[in-house]
Simulated assay, not measured.
Amino acid sequence: MTPPEETGQGISADAPGVPPAVSLCPLETLRNRPDFLRAASARRQGTGGFLLQARDRHDASAAVRVGFTASKKIGNAVFRNRAKRRLREVARALLPARARPGWDYVLVARPHATVSRDFTDLLADLETALRSVHREGGA
Rank of each mutant, 00 (worst) to 15 (best):
V64I: 10
Q45D: 05
G138L: 11
D104M: 08
L107H: 06
A129V: 04
K84R: 12
V108P: 00
G102R: 05
D35W: 06
P20G: 02
D125I: 02
L27K: 10
R98L: 13
A21Y: 05
A42Q: 13
D104G: 03
R88N: 00
A70L: 07
Q9V: 09
G75W: 07
S41G: 02
R82I: 00
G10F: 02
A124Y: 01
C25G: 03
L130W: 00
V90Y: 12
E6Q: 12
G17W: 10
L123A: 11
G46V: 02
L27H: 10
L24C: 02
S116N: 10
A54H: 09
L122R: 05
A40V: 00
A99P: 08
G102Y: 10
L30R: 06
R117Q: 14
M1P: 05
E5H: 10
L94M: 05
D118F: 01
G138F: 13
L95F: 14
A93E: 08
E127V: 15
V66Q: 08
E28K: 15
R135M: 09
A83W: 15
P20N: 04
A99C: 08
P20V: 02
V90R: 08
F119W: 01
S132Q: 12
V18G: 10
R44Q: 11
Q9Y: 07
K73Y: 09
L87F: 10
P26R: 15
D59T: 14
H134V: 03
G102P: 10
L95E: 12
G137K: 11
N32W: 15
R65A: 07
H58W: 15
A13I: 06
N76A: 07
L37Y: 00
A70P: 04
G67A: 11
Q53S: 03
H112G: 00
R44N: 04
E127P: 09
A63H: 14
E89W: 02
A113H: 04
